[in-house]
Amino acid sequence: MVAPQVKFEIRDLNVWFGPAQAIKRLDMEIAANEILSVIGPSNSGKTTFLRTLNRLIELNVNCRVSGAVELEGKDVFRIDAELLRKKIGMVFALPLPLPLSIFDNVAYGVRMHGLKNKDKIKAIAEEALKEAYLWEEVKDRLAESAFKLSGGQQQRLCIARTLAVGPEVILFDEPCSGLDPISTAKVEDAMLKLKEKYTIVLVTNNVKQAARVGDRTAFFLSGELIEVDKTDRIFTAPRDKRTDGYIRGKFG
C-alpha cells in the first residue's frame, strides 16, 4: 500500500478578523480519504479554519490571511474561488436548504456550473441523494419544497447537494448540532461511507462524535493547534494535558 497522499498542506497560517487573531501559526497536513475531526471549545478557530480552506472567510470584509494553504500542491488563494469551491464542498452547522424544491436544491450546483442536459442532471441528483441515504425517503416528492423535510432529512439533503457538485473534499461544520441522536447517527453513517471517496474535515463540538468517526483528531484552543494525532491516541494518551482536560470535559 502506498503512503497516504497529502490533500491539504497548511503552513504558517494566520487569520485575523480586524485586530483579533482567530488562527495562529497553524501547520498541518490533511491526508486524502481520511476523516479529520477538529475539536475545541467555542472561539477556538475551528470554523474559521474550515472557512479558510474553501475561502468563504473572504466574505468577511475585515479578514486578513497570511501563510499558505495548498490543495494538492496548488495555492488555494491563487485558484479561482469558484473552481476551488467546486472541489471543496461544505455542509453547514444548520440545515440550510435553498428556497427551492428538493430536486432543484441538489441540481443547483451542477446547473450553475453550466450543465444543461436534463437527463444528466437527473442522474447526478439521484446518485447524490442515494449517496446521502435520502433517495428512498424523497424519490416520490422531489418537486416539493425542501423546507417540508425534517431537520435530519434537510441536513442529508445538504450533503447530497454538496456531493452532486463532485467535490474531492467535504467540510462539515458541526453538521449535527441541530439534530436528534437518530438523525445524527444517520449523518455519521453517511460520513463513514463517504470517506471511501472523499477527504472529510469534520468540525464538531461533540467530542464523542470525533471519537466515533475521526481517523485523526485535531484539538484547537484559542486559535492554536494544540495537537493532532490518530484519534485513538488523542483519546487514550494525549500528549498535552489541555487536550486531556478538554476531552474529559474539564473545561470548554
Binding site: 468563504l56 469558484e82 469551491r85 440550510l96 443547483y108
Partner: peptide, 13 residues
Amino acid sequence: QSFREVSLSLGAS
C-alpha cells in the same frame, strides 16, 4: 446571508 454562503460554497459565482 446563509443562502448566499450556501450558493457560493457550491461553486456558484
